[in-house]
């Protein structure tokens, strides 16, 4: 693909008290993702400078006022300097509400570029959910915040991606009681459509989706709960009629093993811990988190700010690079589709 047709991906340093800045500097300094996307750094340049120092690298960059002004023939890294975050004001490896507030502000500025059509996707280094919440961004997670920024009213969801497997869930950061209330034929159908659509957009032609049951032993024929009979199975059957390759409900203690063995591309969980226990054990924290269903593509490494190793220059960038690649892949297909439609 010619450089000019590569998608434009904004790359953000995440919370400046975490490992994000040094990871960002490392993947920008040697142009290792140049063939994947046109990367533009959006954030404070002092944060990038600090990251470069921690990583022990030099990032050759040039500052632009806006993304539309970037000269993509210049081999240097384009930087949009927001001038909003002085990292010397914060202690490394320590949660700071003010840094959380600024992390959210930087994300919202990146969304503005997306709304203006100047970037195709956003990949951000780890943020700290608690710092952002305490800094005034009162959302249960960043996905809801992005939807809010974009005035998005349709379905959207977090997905966890590792080695071609896409894990998602019907309910997310809510109490178990609320999750039980939110499980319906409609919400499951919505989640299945969203998963199917997202996987197709990522280039998986016929996504195979396994659906987890809610109750022990998948309800044991109604003995341990009737949601499988009354809600989950009818939803699966309705979606099968729409052409979605979904199966289940499967007992949740083995459904992930089936997927890990390669029988499915995706598992739909009913609630947070049902999905997170198995996927975290499988190493999905080395994977990528994507916000599915929004107009702008958002990806981030699934790991956190790793306060224990900040500033040492040893943070691994594998998941972060995978996040950029995934954002670029989905954005590229979107651009192609738009070109075909035009």
């Amino acid at each position: 693909m010619a450089a000019q047709s590569l998608p434009v991906v904004a790359i953000l340093p995440g919370d400046c008290t975490g490992i994000g800045p040094e990871q960002t500097a490392r993947i920008l300094h040697d142009g290792r993702l140049r063939h994947v996307a046109r990367l533009v750094y959006v954030g404070d340049k002092r944060v990038l400078d600090m990251g470069a120092k921690h990583a022990g690298v030099t990032v050759d960059y040039v500052v632009y006022a806006s993304v539309s002004a970037v000269d993509w023939n210049d081999p240097r890294v384009p930087v949009i300097d927001l001038g909003n975050t002085d990292p010397s004001q914060f202690k490394l490896g320590e949660l700071s509400p003010e840094s959380g507030r600024l992390t959210g502000e930087t994300l919202s500025r990146a969304v503005d570029f997306a709304k203006a059509g100047e970037i195709d996707a956003v990949t951000f280094a780890p943020l700290n959910k608690q710092a952002m919440f305490k800094g005034g961004w009162h959302f249960p997670d960043e996905h809801k915040m992005f939807a809010h920024f974009l005035n998005h009213t349709g379905p959207f969801s977090e997905m966890n991606v590792l080695e071609g497997q896409w894990m998602t869930r019907v309910t997310s950061h809510v109490s178990l009681r609320s999750a039980l209330e939110q499980i319906s034929i409609e919400s499951i159908s919505r989640a299945l459509r969203l998963a199917d659509d997202t996987l197709r957009k990522a280039g998986i032609e016929k996504p195979r989706i396994a659906v987890a049951a809610l109750n022990p032993h998948a309800g044991e024929g109604g003995l341990f709960g009737t949601e499988e009979i009354d809600i989950i199975r009818p939803a699966i059957e309705a979606m099968q009629r729409e052409g979605i390759l979904c199966e289940g409900p499967f007992p949740s203690d083995t459904v992930y093993l089936k997927a890990f063995a390669g029988h499915y591309d995706s598992v739909l969980a009913m609630y947070h811990d049902q999905g997170q226990i198995a996927t975290k054990l499988k190493g999905f924290n080395k994977g990528v988190t994507i916000t599915a269903g929004l107009e702008t593509v958002f990806t981030t490494p699934a790991h956190g700010t790793a306060f224990d190793i900040v500033g040492k220059g040893i943070a691994d960038t594998g998941a972060y690079e995978a996040a950029v690649k995934l954002a670029a892949r989905i954005a590229s297909r979107k651009i192609e589709e738009r070109a075909r439609a035009a």
Binding site: P216, Y256, L257, D273, I277, K280
Partner: peptide, 27 residues
């Protein structure tokens, strides 16, 4: 339930069936 956490207890108490069964089957 990850390996590091498991070194810190002799038994875990899960609050419901699948919260216990998912990790043991996965491990």
């Amino acid at each position: 339930f990850h390996a590091g956490a498991r070194t810190r207890y002799d038994a875990a108490l899960a609050m419901y069936h699948d919260q216990a069964l998912i990790p043991i089957k996965t491990i």
